[in-house]
Write a protein that binds this DNA or RNA. Structure first.
Lengths: 236, 236
DNA sequence: ATGTGATTTGTACTATCGTACAAAAGATCA
DNA sequence: TGATCTTTTGTACGATAGTACAAATCACAT
């Protein structure tokens, strides 16, 4: 194995750079980019403000590094799961597997720390809401491939639905996913304690169940305001 | 008599207070609370920074007034539409009407300005993502009644679905709704120009269609783990 | 032990933040 | 018109922002 990080002083900060990254990730994800100062981050990481400048040059650079750290692994995981999902024979099962391949890494990726994937996804949600420029650029060029692959896969298993509808519905999926991570306490509150909004496993199951049904909704033909029959009973 | 609106200087600001509110709403909704300075708002409104202090005392007070201005009308509109929806006989139609009663005011409320409702809803989305304290308090005490009424109405038209599931799905609805207003350009981009993410009417129809189907999805009985193999793995 | 490069610290600089407040300007009515 | 109240302007103050940079400290090969 690699014995680089070993040191005589074990109980100390083994890697200040990592501590700063983790603190920044947490603070940005819960308070937004602009509400958090470099000094806040340094304080939370037990570091000196100057260290942040040393390791990441600017505050934007720090955010950039957070994205660089997570995007690769998460998209890799997604494409692995997507490839596996596409091999599922049963059409209904395949659609569910595809949705799961998109949702699960958003909650559980992130190498070491517990809830690492969820924290990064929440960060993306908040940056997206704030219209953060750094994030906007990275997301468009890093996630669009993944999104297109996902949309195509869904479309293949639902060929009778126009691609436009699939795009809208996958957009809703991402919005629902984001919001679940941004305000989980609202779920607990509105359910009067019967559900726990921060239960990732529950959120995933609920999300997958709901979104699969949303994808399977009848196509929205823009010409006809005439009513259609619901397809509730189409369960295998 | 009434010589208020027109004076020798005709094309001037008739009501500076309103101009400031509108500018703040727009800027907050697109950039977040912390990224926008009082000076930015004053500049956009053609006012002096001191005027903002005069009319709203603090920056928080300005945000508060934006909420006060919109919450009443939007919730009133929602409860009117909800009452009408509950009178619909056909169960399927009723559910759709209920969802519509929730969604439509979020896009189209706001008395005068075009897109006023959508702008305020986007503002709420952004404030929620930023964890804004002022917004958090107002929302919990102003919207929870509406949300409960909505959830109850949905539950009545889908009695076989546990209330917990309804709560989750209505949470997804709000997340999808928010996200549609936050990043409409993503829809246009991913659909390669075939759809317009900023088309409010299209967004409403797509959202209603998808969410109605999501609500109608089979209940998630937490007792049945006997599905196929869980794809939730742990990567390192 | 010592020299060397990597890291951490402390501090300072400039810009901008929210807000206060006095003076100017405008409006209203006896 | 002049008195009074409302609104707008201009400016200033203390706090805090991001960042730069020299000095101090650390890790480690020699």
């Amino acid at each position: 194995m690699i014995r680089k990080p070993t040191s005589k002083e074990a109980a100390r900060k083994p890697n200040m750079r990592e501590a700063i990254l983790a603190a920044a990730e947490e603070l940005f994800a819960t308070n937004g980019f602009n509400a958090v100062s470099v000094r806040d981050i340094a304080l939370a990481a037990g570091a000196n403000p100057g260290s942040v400048t040393y390791h990441f040059k600017t505050k934007d650079g720090l955010l950039l590094e957070i994205y660089r750290r997570h995007c690769g692994p998460m998209n890799l995981r997604r494409s692995e799961l997507l490839a596996a999902a596409k091999r599922v024979r049963d059409l209904q099962d395949r659609l569910e597997a595809i949705v799961r391949a998109y949702v699960v890494p958003a909650f559980t990726s992130g190498s070491d720390l517990a809830g690492g994937g969820a924290r990064f996804t929440r960060l993306r949600a908040v940056m997206s809401a704030e219209g953060n420029e750094v994030a906007r650029k990275i997301i468009a060029q890093t996630f669009d491939d993944t999104s297109h692959a996902f949309i195509d896969a869904v479309h293949e298993s639902l060929p009778h639905i126009p691609r436009t509808d699939i795009v809208w519905r996958s957009h809703f999926l991402l919005g629902a996913l984001y919001y679940s991570l941004v305000t989980p306490e609202r779920v607990s509150r509105l359910s009067r304690g019967e559900a726990d909004g921060s239960d990732a496993a529950a959120a995933i199951e609920q999300l997958v169940q709901a979104i699969v049904a949303a994808f399977q909704a009848p196509a929205l033909d823009q010409a006809a305001p005439a009513r259609r029959r619901p397809v509730v009973g189409s369960k295998a």
